[in-house]
Computed example of a mutant assay.
Amino acid sequence: MLQSKKLSKKYQDKRILDDITLEIPQAQVTAFIGANGAGKSTLLGIMSRLITKEDGEVLIDDQDVTKWKSRALAQKLAILKQSNQVSARLTVEDLVAFGRFPYSKGRLTLEDQQKVTQALEYMEITDLKADYIDELSGGQQQRVYIAMIIAQDTEYVLLDEPLNNLDMKHAVQMMKILRRLVDDFGKTIVLVLHDINFASAYADYMVGLKDGRIVAQGSTAEMMTPEQLNIVYDMPLAITEIDSCKYCLYFK
């Protein structure tokens, strides 16, 4: 179980997160939604131990995240940040293989190699495995980083805006893959999304943040109403339904 209790964070004198108490549903896709500056990425960073907290605690399987040994945590939880840069000249396969470091420490076993191959196939980038990362487009690089996370094979996967740099086709493919990781393998996925309709189409649970606080949360069906979304975004929104899925109209 992944949860936070009375979590707070300040930068200088500005409170970024305030009294965040949250339990992430197991084996589901949870989407953090909200305007820029709402605290979504900060919350994700604290839950993964990349950002220090001010007050409160984050628990993974009832143990404070700060108490976990780094290797054990990396076998339990994977995080993909919003911006990723690799200074070394690596091939796609080399980078994906880094996902196995918590297990093999760089000496890949047969099982590690199989996990890398499976991750490349999942992301449909096997044909790129010998290419160098710095020669790929932004969208291709994003898919490679997701493959690395898949190779890491953790119970919890945290993704900060994973659809960045992706065109419509590849964004849909990305969300279908994340959905499949939950449905087929029972992963628990938490991601920051700006597109409310991608959240509606692929997430099970949504958490709305505003000014560093959780202002609404619930199942996707519960959250996809004009009333709930207005609380999160402070603007009038209309909802339509197509093939039993709710979509948000915000162009009026």
Rank of each mutant, 00 (worst) to 15 (best):
I239Y: 00
T240E: 01
V190W: 12
K187Y: 11
L237G: 01
R180Y: 05
I189W: 03
L229Y: 01
L191P: 02
H194T: 07
M206I: 15
R179N: 15
P236D: 08
R179S: 15
E227Q: 10
L191Q: 09
L209M: 14
M224N: 02
R180W: 03
L181T: 10
A216H: 03
D204K: 07
G208F: 04
A238G: 03
P226A: 04
Y233S: 05
E241T: 13
D243P: 01
V192M: 12
G186P: 04
R179Y: 08
P236A: 02
T220G: 09
I242K: 11
V182W: 07
K187M: 08
D243E: 09
T240N: 00
I196P: 04
E222W: 00
G212D: 09
H194E: 04
V192N: 14
D184W: 01
M206F: 05
A203R: 09
Q228Y: 01
R213Y: 02
S219P: 06
P226Y: 02
M235Y: 04
I231M: 00
A216Q: 12
P226V: 02
G208M: 07
G186A: 07
I231K: 03
F185C: 13
L193D: 04
R213D: 02
M206R: 04
T188G: 12
L178K: 11
N197M: 13
Q217C: 07
V190K: 14
Q228I: 07
T240Q: 00
L209Y: 12
N197P: 14
L181W: 11
L178D: 08
M235L: 13
V215S: 06
M235Q: 08
V207Y: 05
H194V: 08
K210Y: 10
A221W: 00
D195Y: 11
L181N: 12
D183R: 15
P236I: 01
L229T: 01
M223W: 09
G208C: 12
M223A: 13
A238C: 00
D211Q: 15
V190M: 14
L181M: 14
G208H: 03
V192G: 06
D204N: 15
G218D: 09
V232R: 01
G208I: 06
A221V: 09
F185D: 15
V215H: 07
L229M: 06
D204S: 06
T188F: 10
M224I: 03
G218E: 08
A216K: 13
T220E: 05
D234T: 01
G186T: 06
A203K: 10
K187S: 07
L237A: 01
Y205C: 13
I231V: 07
D184Q: 14
L193H: 07
G212E: 04
Q217A: 07
Y205A: 11
I196H: 03
P226G: 05
A203W: 10
R213Q: 13
P226C: 06
